[in-house]
Design a protein around this nucleic acid. Structure first.
Length: 650
DNA sequence: TTAGGGTTAG
């Protein structure tokens, strides 16, 4: 072999794609240098860390397999690569291989503290207590369980598996835990929902750093204790970027959308450089709140910033546009991506199109994704199955469901089974839906039965609805919407005694349903409307306009209120009057009054739109020559020239 | 040339 010239190692540092790694590899292979341990190690490292896409991992693994004597470093790098990939199980296989070798004669590679740290991370990512505790035993046998880094990873692994006591035992046995180990234990307390333990541990900490406070803030935010998080934040003198990000993300997670935006602005004013996490956090707030104007402002910021080519920020932006009702802008962000799209980019776009009923485009995109070499994952399949179910494409949905396992080796999860029940149920194939549920290899959850109940409600199947309801009474007895749904089914077929019985049981048990509300953004301000009569402030304006619209609609639009909808929608609205007072109608009336005529009216509703409102929107869009986009609990309805993008299938 | 704790979108 030619003596190795290690100066070529630096060549790999510039590789950001598998293609460039392959080019250098081909060159080195010609001169026999690629098997040099240092060079081979660097090649594997580059594939697993700098690129880390599944194709790069496979390439590195295949190359590794051709080496005569891979060393521990190479094993560790691959174990690390797989631990954060879609197939963390491969980390275990490699680790076991390394562990078996170590018993052989000669000086075979043996697992070291790095190997344990990486493979434990795989167990944590899979939340596999069984694998994690077996690895703990192995670490003990190798005399590495007391190693500070291994011990800290063990604490995190147990926390991730929800085993606070095991984490505590590892921590208590550490001879000299440092601040990182204390922080890991603090995180474990919060992860296992032990707020009191977390508070006590925090008081006992002999040393604290910025991460300790950030763990506390994040722990409180995840537990919904926004004010506790805020008071920790306010007590801090020095706040780093992670502290600010933790607040922004925490606010977004707790639906404090305006505050997420406010803290992002404050962060900029304080001269703290936002990171991709700040942008993802604030954009997710915009997405959830449906704040289109703010999304556009943030888009402008991104275009002028160092995030221009950041794939995660681009994905968050595209998702925000699609959830704010501007799927055209989402598509434009997607089409103009200058960096390689990843599985999340494709999935967001597919799901965005599906939510709009643009199902053919979603299916086309799925095909293009496969062609581009990006592998769909579990969430991509949820999106494409959702697309099929919302368009009544039973055959196609079924073929995607099979493809998941047959082509991509992905076992369908409960969400995929849910999509299939919805696919059959929505299309009125209730017998098939029930048969599918009965034959599921995993235990049907309350959501599955609720999906079936929803389908029975659309298609008026009382017999099956009762069966679904019986299951729900066991799995989730206190769910008010299930009872309302069943009472609606009875109401439609005129079984008033049963309706009354359900209503009485609900009032005896003091059950309250979710009140319906709709929101509209006008001049950067959000206005929220609830159903029922409430004549104050801006609502008065909405009522007046709605009255005017109603008269015009009845005169010239051929609008007849859909009385049945009252029954169908009882679950979704505080019913105080009639369908005329539904919150989405008020929001649209307000939009017509306040917004410029050329603008699209965007309304967001927390529940599903009812049939009557759907009809109302169609006629208004035509009579007033205005585009209306309504985002409801499950999808978008885009009304234009008297028809809706959902083609009335919803 | 590889680690452990804090924030990350579908």
């Amino acid at each position: 072999m030619i003596s190795a010239d290690h100066s070529c190692l630096t060549l790999f540092n510039c590789c950001r794609s598998l293609t460039s790694v392959k080019q250098i590899h081909a060159h080195l292979s010609k001169i026999g240098l690629d098997v040099d341990p240092l060079i081979a190690g660097k090649l594997i490292l580059q594939c697993c860390t700098a690129i880390s896409a599944s194709l790069a991992l496979t390439y590195a693994h295949r190359f590794f397999g051709c080496l005569k004597a891979p060393n521990t470093f190479m094993y560790n790098t691959l174990i690390r690569g797989y631990s954060e990939s879609q197939s963390p199980g491969c980390s275990f296989e490699l680790f076991n291989q390394l562990n078996r070798n170590s018993g052989c004669s000669g000086s075979p590679p043996r697992p070291d503290s790095f190997s344990f740290a990486f493979v434990l991370k795989a167990a944590a990512n899979m939340s596999s207590f069984r694998a994690g505790s077996q690895l703990h035993c192995q670490a003990f046998l190798h005399g590495l369980d007391a190693h500070l880094f291994v011990g800290t990873t063990l604490i995190s692994m147990y926390a991730e598996c929800g085993r606070g006591n095991s984490a505590r035992r590892v921590f208590d046995e550490m001879p000299q835990p440092n601040v990182v180990a204390w922080n890991a234990m603090l995180t474990a307390c919060f992860r296992c929902s032990d707020l009191e333990d977390a508070r006590a541990l925090f008081e006992r900490m002999p040393f604290k750093n910025s991460a300790s406070f950030n763990v506390q803030i994040s722990g409180f935010m995840k537990a919904g204790k926004v004010e506790s998080a805020r008071s920790v934040f306010n007590s801090l003198g020095l706040k780093d970027d992670v502290t600010w990000n933790t607040m922004i993300v925490g606010f977004a997670q707790n639906s404090y959308f305006d505050e997420a935006l406010m803290y992002f602005r404050d962060m900029l004013h304080m001269g703290i450089r936002p990171t991709e996490v700040s942008l993802i956090g604030v954009l997710s707030a915009c997405a959830d709140a449906g704040m289109l104007v703010s999304t556009k402002i943030l888009h402008g910021f991104v275009e002028k910033s160092w995030f221009l080519e950041n794939i995660s920020v681009r994905n968050a932006l595209l998702d925000a546009y699609s959830k704010c009702g501007d799927v055209g802008m989402a598509r434009s962000v997607f089409d103009h991506m200058t960096v390689d799209r990843n599985v999340i980019s494709w999935t967001c776009m597919i799901s965005g199109l599906a939510m709009y009923g643009r199902v053919n485009e979603a299916i086309q995109l799925f095909y293009e994704m496969e062609e581009s070499g990006v592998q769909p994952d579990r969430i991509t399949f949820i999106s494409i199955l959702y697309a099929c179910s919302h368009a009544g494409l039973i055959e196609q949905g079924h073929s995607y469901f099979s493809k998941m396992k047959d082509v991509y080796g992905l076992d369908p999860g409960i969400e995929h089974y849910g999509c299939m029940v919805d696919l059959y149920g929505r299309a009125g194939k209730l017998a098939e839906a029930y048969k599918f549920v009965s034959q599921m290899p995993i235990e049907p959850t309350d959501t599955i039965w609720r999906t079936l109940l929803g389908a029975c409600s659309i298609h008026g199947n009382v017999h099956l609805a009762q069966r679904a309801r019986e299951k729900l009474m066991v799995l989730d007895p206190n769910n008010s919407s299930d009872r309302v749904l069943l009472s609606n089914i009875y109401a439609v077929i005129g079984q008033w005694k049963d309706v009354a019985a359900i209503r009485n049981s609900m009032s005896t048990e003091r059950m309250k349903k979710d009140p319906g509300w709709s929101m509209i953004e006008v001049d950067k301000l959000a206005y929220k409307f609830t159903a029922g009569r409430n004549y104050s402030g801006f609502t008065q304006e909405a009522y007046e306009k709605l009255g005017e619209i109603m008269s015009r609609l009845k005169e010239g639009g051929g609008y007849v209120p859909e009385v049945k909808s009252v029954l169908h929608d009882i679950e979704d609205e505080e019913k105080e009057g009639s369908v005329a007072l539904h919150s989405e109608k008020l929001a649209v009336a307000f939009g017509l009054k306040r917004l410029h005529k050329s603008k699209t009216i965007h309304v967001m509703k927390n529940l599903r739109i009812c049939k009557d409102c759907h009809e109302f929107m169609k006629i208004v869009s035509q009579l007033y020559d205005v585009d209306i986009v309504v985002r409801d609990r499950s999808r978008f309805h885009s009304f234009k020239d008297g028809s809706c993008s959902c083609k009335d299938y919803w």
